[in-house]
Simulated scan of single mutants.
Amino acid sequence: MTAAYNQKTAGYRGYKVLPIRADAAVPASQSPSQAGFPYQKSNSALGEAISADIAEMHKTGEIAKIIQSYGLQPSAADVGEPRLVQ
């Protein structure tokens, strides 16, 4: 997603940005990446508040709208259940 945005805005016009093909040897290629918000594990209230806010933004479609406002595909908001990509 970042590469596609940079191609449109940062002068990377000589390059073609394509989605990667899923490869079983590279597990991260089989699932979309997810953003993370680091916080202290002991501050569970903050983690719960962040998760609730993100869930609400997904529910209302706000995340997809934000992504689309940058000229990207709103489907990039569909990243599945939270997980650690290794």
Score class of each variant (00 low, 15 high):
S31R: 15
Y5M: 06
K16E: 14
G47F: 03
P38E: 08
A55C: 07
H58N: 11
M1N: 04
S42H: 03
N6W: 14
P74T: 12
I67T: 03
K59Q: 09
M1H: 08
I63T: 13
E56V: 00
G14R: 05
T9L: 04
P74M: 09
G61N: 08
D23W: 02
K65M: 03
E48L: 08
V26M: 08
S51I: 00
T9C: 01
E62G: 01
N6S: 11
A24E: 06
M1C: 06
P27F: 05
G61D: 02
T9H: 13
H58Q: 14
A24V: 05
S33D: 10
A35W: 14
G61Q: 08
A25W: 00
G71M: 04
I66G: 08
P32E: 06
L72N: 03
K65G: 09
G36C: 10
E81M: 10
N6P: 00
A64V: 03
N43Q: 12
A52L: 07
K41W: 10
A55H: 00
A22K: 04
S75R: 12
A25C: 01
V85G: 05
A77D: 06
G36I: 10
A76L: 15
P19V: 07
A4T: 08
I50Y: 06
A24Q: 06
P32H: 09
S69Q: 10
A22I: 00
S31K: 13
T60S: 15
G36H: 08
N43K: 09
S29T: 14
R13P: 00
A64C: 07
S33I: 08
G47H: 04
F37M: 13
L46F: 15
G14D: 04
A64Q: 07
V85L: 14
S51D: 10
L46I: 06
E48D: 11
F37W: 14
L18H: 01
S33E: 10
A49T: 12
V17S: 05
I50K: 05
E48Y: 00
M1Y: 09
A25F: 00
I50S: 02
F37Y: 14
V85Y: 02
D53Y: 10
K65Q: 12
S33Q: 09
I54R: 03
A28M: 12
G80Y: 04
A64E: 09
S44E: 11
Y5H: 08
P74R: 09
P27S: 05
E48A: 15
R21F: 04
N6L: 15
I20K: 03
Y15D: 03
Q7W: 10
A3M: 10
Q7S: 12
A28Q: 14
Q30V: 02
S42P: 00
T2R: 13
D53A: 12
Y39V: 03
Q86W: 05
P74E: 07
T2Q: 13
V85F: 02
S42Y: 03
G80A: 11
L72H: 05
A45Q: 12
E62K: 15
Q86A: 13
A25N: 11
R83L: 05
F37L: 14
K41S: 07
E56P: 00
H58M: 06
I66K: 14
Q7L: 11
V17Y: 03
A22H: 00
T2V: 15
P74V: 12
Q68E: 15
A10L: 15
A24L: 02
A45N: 10
A10V: 01
A3R: 06
R13Y: 04
T60G: 02
E81S: 13
S51W: 01
R83N: 05
Q86I: 09
A76F: 15
I20A: 04
L72E: 05
S31E: 08
